[in-house]
Design a protein around this nucleic acid. Sequence first.
DNA 1: AGCACGATTAACT
DNA 2: GTTAATCGTGCTC
Length: 202
Amino acid sequence: MGGRRLSRDFFARDTLAVARDLLGQRLVRLERGGRLGGLIVETEAYAGSEDLGCHGRSGRTERNRSLWEAPGTLYVYFNYGMHWLANLVTERAGYPSAVLLRGIRPEEGLEVIRRRRAGRPAGRLTDGPAKLCQALGVDGRLDGSDVCGDAAELFVEAGPPPRDQHICRGPRVGLNSVPEPWKSVPWRFRVEPAGLPGEGPR
DNA sequence: AGCACGATTAACT
DNA sequence: GTTAATCGTGCTC
């Protein structure tokens, strides 16, 4: 089991291209040898210190240091006092850019995922950046880890690429106090349910 | 040492 | 559509 892992070269590209191309790829979390995960269906690009929506805007701090690491580094941070959010670092070391993982369609480890998201309906298991972290057991312990390394506990495998026709773009979410144009640039990417093989529309 | 804020979610009306 | 929950971080005093 397990397909081809995405290499560091995949992440060492323009952040918007990585955000777009991550759609349809398979996010995998290894836990005690077991696999949890699913196909990536929503992402957002955060591109460098000039992007005033990006955590890299005000320089390097203890919290965001992973954002400056090599492409393929995992940047996980805590938000709103209760949620973990996971990003994949892009471009090059020393340049603060990453793609926020905002949604997956669960495929593996459904029993664990359902348990961690107990009480939520089937379509609401991993349809948000904090929800997917909770479902996959991702928290600050994984911050700074390398998704391209042999020992990675979280990584990305090649999955079925969606057609352009099934991809929507729009403004990033939750940047209420960010100035224009950064607040409105269409750097959020999402696949329509019909755009991936399997279950079909939901 | 104190404080305002946030790349969210779930439960409301 | 609105709002409370909740707390680490980073900035100000």
